[in-house]
């Protein structure tokens, strides 16, 4: 993404922060929506738009789980594995994904590059455990292993969203 596109996104919020550095997270999140991850050029564009160095921007980006510095699939599927979900069967979901997609422990990017499955820590939907989130769409649950299988099929068949908020 270009620095100008990023500027157009963050300029309307500038007055809300006493220091412009606060715009780095909104800028990174927006820059990521183009490809689903951030490459060197994106980091440089964010640095330019916010007025920071690329090295600084990269060190911030690397801190956050939901900013991706490596290519990901069309959709990211986050399976919660924390305690409430463990107690209601999250590991069965991952086992099914492992079986079906051939991903070790059920996580990673599928061979066709369509889907990235990752382990998530508590998603805040423990009353609907075990639960799964696709990108930053609303978290779904409780899901059975069969539900998850259907979900993966649907996501594969579905279109790539115009902007990849994740």
């Amino acid at each position: 993404m270009t620095a100008d596109e990023i500027r157009a996104h963050i300029d309307p919020m500038r007055h809300e922060f006493a220091e412009s550095r606060s715009l780095v997270l909104p800028a990174l999140k927006f820059a990521q929506t183009e490809k689903g991850h951030l490459d060197r050029d994106d980091l440089a564009a964010v640095a330019d738009a916010v007025g920071l160095t690329s090295a600084y921007v990269e060190s911030v980006a690397s801190f956050y789980d939901r900013l991706y510095l490596k290519p990901t699939g069309k959709r990211i599927v986050s399976v919660c594995v924390t305690l409430s979900c463990l107690l209601r069967g999250s590991d069965e979901l991952l086992r099914r994904i492992e079986e079906r997609e051939g991903l070790p422990h059920g996580v990673g990017t599928t061979d066709d590059g369509e889907l990235t499955v990752q382990e998530a820590q508590c998603l805040g939907y423990c009353d609907r455990a075990p639960c799964v989130q696709v990108d930053v769409d609303e978290t779904m649950g409780p899901l059975s292993a069969d539900d998850v299988e259907r979900l993966l099929d649907d996501l594969r068949a579905g279109d790539r969203p115009e902007r990849l908020w994740r």
Binding site: E16, S22, L25, L28, K29, Y64, D65, R66, L67
Partner: peptide, 12 residues
């Protein structure tokens, strides 16, 4: 007075 909503990016 106004309120700004800031979004995190995944970190407990």
């Amino acid at each position: 007075y106004d309120i700004t909503l800031s979004r995190g990016a995944g970190a407990y």
